[in-house]
Design a protein around this nucleic acid. Structure first.
Lengths: 183, 183
DNA sequence: TATAACATGTAACTAGTTACATGATTGG
DNA sequence: CCAATCATGTAACTAGTTACATGTTATA
């Protein structure tokens, strides 16, 4: 699926693998991520399939950049993918839930330590949705007003992250309280 | 990680690959799943590593069963894994969010159709948490009272699923309303 | 009479991660 | 002076999915 994420970004403007990584981290990072190495190998595969074309840009005192551009074939593939509805639920893998499920014989404090650690991580993550992402959206919309609808959808995905983190924190707090009381 | 999920189940009782699949689907299914084929190949790998041992059970008029049992080495591995805290957030991949993010140029009705379809899927999923899973928990606790703490943690994971689905539905309803109003 | 449940497995493939390799420039 | 940023890539590996192959019995 990374293929479509990359096509999606490249439809806005040509970019290098390095820039795609940064853009993804800042925008779709909370619901779709990829490692730099995967981005480079996927771009290569996509070019071979004709979805994108690249041009090397020599630079002085810096490594050359390779700028990728979406082709007509790429635009078609992206459009077709976007039109095809999602018909199954995403399979989620929650490592902490898996551990917790089998932790019945562990000591109370061991479980609490784990839960509190994750509570911290999610607390920090929740902070990000109140600052970083909204800034990013406003910034882009100011520069390109034709992206108004796009920006509304970006905001919807940011909102998902916010609700998700709030839900997670609520559950962690409830679960911590339960273990404190009943173990 | 499937390795630890399987060890976790086998610590309760010896089981076949087929039974492990069914048990996973009913219990950890909403936060950890595996295909039958992956279960069989992983069990094989685990036996080679000495974490489990198997005994074939001949059956009449049915294919033979292969019952797997956890070894001391397996118990140690499981315990060590359970004690090791989760220090990073799980990376989630939300296909619908990815599509939505790039759907700014699609028609209003196309987006709404996609959102409503997923609204249905999550509506049905949410129903499951009110019936199936609690039954399963009560059933087990009645038979084995020494699993009281285990059952409380199982209930906590079920609760996560419930909150997750409620959050998702809330977000879908909000997003549907937003698209209806602003596109 | 068909299909779901029981029961196990392999092969080929797709996706994603970790580790390695290189090297200049800028900022603290 | 050290770490971060810029910039690209390969190799080896782990995890998970899809498709194939086989065959009986119970249920609707």
């Amino acid at each position: 699926m990374l293929v479509y994420a990359l096509l999606g970004f490249l439809k806005y403007q040509p970019m290098t693998g390095y820039e795609l990584k940064q853009t993804m981290d800042k925008s779709t990072g909370h619901f779709w991520q990829a490692k730099q190495s995967q981005i480079y190998t996927t771009l290569k595969k996509m070019e071979k399939e004709g979805r994108i074309i690249s041009h090397p840009e020599p630079q002085e005192h810096r490594p050359d950049r390779r700028v990728y551009q979406i082709t007509e074939s790429g635009k078609t593939a992206l459009r077709e993918w976007l039109l095809q509805p999602v018909t199954t639920l995403d399979s989620t893998k929650q490592l902490l839930l898996l551990k917790l499920f089998f932790s019945g014989k562990l000591e109370k404090e061991t479980i609490l330590t784990q839960l509190r650690l994750l509570r911290n991580l999610h607390g920090r993550q929740a902070e990000l949705y109140k600052t970083e992402s909204p800034d990013f959206i406003e910034e882009i919309t100011a520069l390109q007003p034709d992206l108004k609808q796009d920006a509304q959808l970006w905001e919807a995905t940011r909102r998902f992250g916010e609700l998700y983190e709030k839900m997670y924190i609520r559950w962690l707090d409830e679960t911590i309280a339960m273990v404190e009381a009943k173990f």
